[in-house]
Each structure stands twice: as C-alpha cells, then as structure tokens.
Nucleic acid binder design. Structure first.
Lengths: 341, 341
DNA sequence: TTTTAAAATGCAAGCTATTACATGAATAAA
DNA sequence: TTTATTCATGTAATAGCTTGCATTTTAAAA
C-alpha cells in the first residue's frame, strides 16, 4: 500500500511553537486566534506546504464539506449550467461538489445516492421529486438534507428550488393555441420516473382543456432524449395522424424539438409554415437550429446558485423545508407560427 | 453541530459477536474469513443497516477511492461524454469521481487540483499538459498519479490517453487545401494556457506550409468559447481581410464554427459556396447547424473509458507512465466545399 | 495596584476503521 | 499421539484532526 508522508497538524504546531488546537483554530476559526499567532502559524503552514488530511477532518468534525449532486445526464446541456452555478457557490464557501449521473435510471440514481452518502456527502441536490420512498427514508435516517431542483411540489416537507413545469408548459401551449392550432401532438421524454416530463405533458393538456379542444386530441409520443429520437417521434406522429395532420408539435425539451424540426424539414415540411414546433429548456442548441426554437427559458443559473445556498444553509443548521419558486419565461423565436388554413 | 448517530464497526462486531477486525475483513477481504462467520457478520451489517464511515476508512487505509477530474468547462458538450465514460468505469470499480471545472483559468485549475487532493483524491484526470510546473511537483510530492487526456506529448514522464491535436488538425486542413483554398483564416480558442488549441493552430500551419502557401497567409483570431464569439470573430476576419476575402475558415472547435457559419449566413454569404467552414470535436451541435459541419471526430468515449482504467491501474500500483494514443478521424459533411473561382 | 472579565491558548479525549502481530483452533504430517 | 503448519480470529496501536473544558494571558475596570 501507498505510504504518503505528508506534514500533519502536529508538524505545523511544532514548527510554529503552538498547540495543535491552535493550528486547527487558525485554519477553521481564524477569528478566535490572535493576529500575531495566526501569522506565525500561517507561515509554518506555508513553509511545510501543509494541507489538512481530509479523512481525519471528516471523522473529527463529523462533516466533509462535500455536497452531492445527482443529475439524470451529463451528456447534454440541460443540467450543465445549473450544476456549474451550484459548484461556483460551493467553491466560494470552501465546500466541494460531487456529481454523479443516473442516466435517467431510478436504480442507478438510488445507487448513486447511496454512494454519495457513503462518501460522506453532507447534503444532496436531486432533480425532481419522483423516487422510491425508501430513498427518502434512508436519507432522513442519515440526516442528510436534500434540496430538489428543476421542479416544484405542494408537499410541504420537501425543500426545493425550482419552477412549476406544468404551469410553464401550459403557458407556452396556451400561447400557441391562441394562434389557432387545433391538431397537436406532443413529443415527450419518457414520463415514467420523470416528474418534470410528466408535468409538462399535463400542462399541455391543461391548455388544451381550456381551449375547449378535446384533451385526448393530443397524441403523445414518448422517446428517449436525443435528436435522432426526436426525428423518429416526428415520423411516427405523422404516420399516426395521417387523417388530420398536426400543425403544432410540442416537445418536452429542446433536444427533441431539434430532432423534430430537422426531420420535418427533411421530409419536406416547412417550419413553421406547415408545422410549428416548440421546445422547452432554452439550451444553446435551440438557437442553432433553423428556424430557431420558440421555447421556455428555465433559470438554470439562478436555480443552481440558489439551490447551493439553500442546501448549504440547510446543512449548517437544519431547519424547516425551504421552498423557492422561480419564474420561467417564454422565448419567442421562429419555430412557432400560425397554422396554415 | 449536527450529531449523527450511525452504527459503527463496533456495533456490528458486538451484534455479530466477533471482533472489529473480523468485521473489517468481512467487508474488505471476505476471502480471509470463514464462511460461517462471514454470514453472521453480514446479517449484523444488514440488520443494523451499517455503512462504513468514509472519513475513518480514508484515514485508516490512507486511500479514498475518489478520483478527481478537472475539466475546463462543463457548460458545453466537449468534455461531457468523456467524463461520463470515465465515471462509468469507476462506478464499476466502486470508486467515485469528483468533477470540478476551471473555466479555462489556470489559477482556478490550480485551486481545483489542490482542493481535490485535499479532498483525498487518489488520482487525477487532467486535460492537456500545459500548467505550472509547481502543480506537477506538488502532485508528485503528494504521490498522486495523474493521467492527462485530450492531448498527447513526447514527454516520457507523463501518462496520457489522448490524441495528437496537431496532426489531426493538419490532416483536416490538408484536405481542405486540396480543394483549392488559398485564403484562409483561423478562429481559435485562446491558446494561452490551452495546448490543445495551440496545437490545432500549429497543425493548420503545418498543412499550409506543405501546400507552399505562405504560413502567415493565415490570419488567426482568438476568442473565448461561444457561438456568439465565433460570429464576432468571423466579422473581424472579414474586416481585416477586405482585400482578398477568405474562402475557408478553420475553427478550433465546433462551437466557434457554428458561430462562424451563422454569422456568415446572416451577412449574406453562402456556406460553403462563398465560404467554407470546418470545425473540430464533432459534438452534437455540429449536425444541428445547417449546413452540417465538416469536422474532426474525437474519440470522447474511448478516451474517458481508457483514461479511467489507466488511472485506476496507476493508483493500484504505481508504475512507469502509460501513454495511449487514440485515432481521430475527419467527418465530411456539408460545410466544406471548393472555393469559388 | 488589585480585581474582574474576556480573550487566547493548551490539554487530552474522542471520532471510526484498518492492520501488524499475537494467539488459538483446526488440520496435516510424522 | 505428538509436532508442525495453516487458517481464523482477536488485541491493540495507529491514523490526523476537532473541540469541550481547563488554564493562562491580556485587557478593562475599580
């Protein structure tokens, strides 16, 4: 086994001529140490190139300064911005973020959560609320604070920093319906285990209901998250709706929407003249496709930042759940237009 | 301060009626414990819902099973795939990945590296080779194995799993020059502190040299990594080359290339008829823009996977540096054509 | 100057798991 | 049966840091 031989607190204390307690305080609560001692200690730290041993600190202080994040995927941009913001906040507090991804698999998510807790995570950021209750009981048993993001809930026991997917989706679809669309299809990410996706579909249904269209007028196709699958979904929709073809295709996210737009164009439809397409998330890709996507902007950055602050506070002093609702806004670009008549 | 009260090794040993040493062995070297004892111990572990304390284990065993990764950015897809592959390998080995991003800032990278080491990382994955020698001496002092990715080097002391940016870039540009382009501009990410970017520029220069064009015939504009900046760079190039406008714009990466394509089109140029554009990285966005980008495919996934395996081995038994060179390949799509004459 | 209060520092217990070494049990060889 | 080996288990030292409490120093008040 490897045998590192790094300077320890004791080495520092010896060099500085103080006790280890004082050195420890210098590092953790500098205000409790006199100016002059602190200076001497810090010089010793410098000269020895001392860095505290993580394990020892974790065990002695019973916390690690590690905050775990489990996101469904790293492979596309949806969560990246939020995670980056989350990290930056933690960084400024000398804490560390541990990220893991679940590939949208509940089992893998459960495993990742256990791993993170096993690694000593002081708190956890999760996406959405839909997971095995066992996980929640495990986490509360271990007294690990959890903040959820990218969604909201009525459940007063959950802390979250998110937004209401259903309302946001309804708002977008309502706007689209106001242009006169009546034949609508929806391309969703798999809604099983994904409350965000499910809520977005519900929101679309809400808007359809308000518009006095038959809610089951909307064909919903579910498919995994990729541009290619978006295109497949489009083709399947066209095939299924051959009698009255859709004039509007609502997509659960921008990646699928891009796939729909491209497939539609390849098959000879003009967007938005023949078919309108709307997305969700407002990730970079939505401005790259032509026409640029009309979509819903999600406050990625704020969500990450505020979630980090919230979780950090919760770890410092556990309190009642904290719930923060953020606003989304519709971004009007070129992929939504009036239906042909 | 929070006071968790979780079961400890001792609790388990008590319940199972054995010593803590035996329990520890059951968990770490089960083959050294008799069938019957092991069963009893595992039952105790189950019934108490015991999970080893990470800090204690880290301090006692002097390793954490944490592998650190510092990437320049999470905000776009370049590194995401590789990191995901890296994680999956570690997961299968019961190790954990800690990711941090440096925002392309050497200072922040240095800080992140120290943080990761402070957090007990057993090994580190870094991108490229260009960093303060102090960092390398720090790491070797701490005896932390390092594997670099996304680049290659002649330096026999470095372990890496990467590819030769210069050669790959040269190959691409050579192909483009063969179509007859003579007036070329290059849009690069800032090359200071970024050896990958710098190597790609050099590769382009190599190809130009071979083609007997004047190497300084190539205007190079550097700008930060974003679609918007790519567009700005394009406009600056057009302004600077007003006498003989470029027919080919080589981009250090796909994101910049997308910006160039879009700006060119906005300004009334046809791509590739008036201006050809090529990218690098072959990330998803390169197929979304129209025309789709001709670019260089980088083996993201293999790089991540092999890097993980290499680093893991290196941590298990430190050895001589391991160097793995992977192949890139040119992806021909529609953004590259013959120059107008 | 003496007394009192506050601030700074030190002492030492404690946190939990690993592991060298010692001991005892079981098995094989003599 | 006795001795030599091997295997399983236990004992206890150890890792490096934090922190409650005790003690000393310093500053403020009397």
């Amino acid at each position: 086994m490897k045998k590192r031989n790094l300077p320890t607190l004791e080495d520092v204390s010896f060099t500085a001529g103080v006790s280890t307690a004082t050195v420890s305080r210098c590092l953790n609560e500098p205000e409790k140490v006199s100016e002059k001692t602190r200076k001497r200690v810090m010089e010793a730290v410098e000269s020895l190139n001392y860095a505290p041993n993580f394990g020892a600190r974790a065990i002695a202080a019973n916390r690690t300064g590690i905050f775990g994040v489990v996101i469904p995927t790293m492979e596309n941009a949806i969560f990246a911005k939020g995670v980056e913001a989350f990290q930056n906040v933690l960084l400024s507090k000398n804490a560390t973020m541990l990220v893991a991804s679940s590939n949208y698999s509940p089992e893998q998510e459960a495993r990742q959560i256990r791993t993170l807790v096993g690694r000593g995570a002081d708190g956890l950021l999760l996406i959405g609320f839909q997971r095995d209750p066992k996980i929640y009981s495990f986490l509360s048993e271990q007294e690990i604070p959890v903040v959820s993001a990218w969604a909201s809930t009525k459940d007063a026991n959950q802390s979250y920093v998110g937004f209401d997917n259903r309302t946001a989706s309804a708002k977008l679809v309502r706007k689209a319906l106001a242009l006169g669309h009546e034949n609508i299809a929806y391309v969703s990410a798999p809604s099983a285990g994904n409350d965000r996706a499910a809520q977005r579909v519900l929101g679309a249904r809400d808007a359809i209901g308000e518009a006095r269209l038959k809610p089951d007028n909307m064909l919903v196709v579910e498919t995994d998250y990729s541009i290619h699958n978006g295109g497949e979904a489009f083709r399947s929709i066209v095939k299924q709706m051959d009698e009255i073809p859709p004039t509007l295709i609502v997509c659960g996210n921008d990646v699928l929407a891009v796939g729909v737009v491209q497939a539609a164009q390849e098959d000879g439809y003009r967007v938005p003249e023949d078919i309108s397409v709307v997305g969700f998330d407002n990730i970079e890709i939505s401005t790259v496709v032509s026409p640029a996507l009309t979509t819903v902007d999600v406050p990625h950055h704020d969500m990450g930042r505020i979630a980090a602050e919230t979780l950090y506070d919760l770890v410092q002093n556990p309190s009642d759940p904290i719930q923060v609702d953020l606003e989304t806004r519709m971004i009007e670009r070129q992929s939504l237009g009036k239906p042909r008549r």
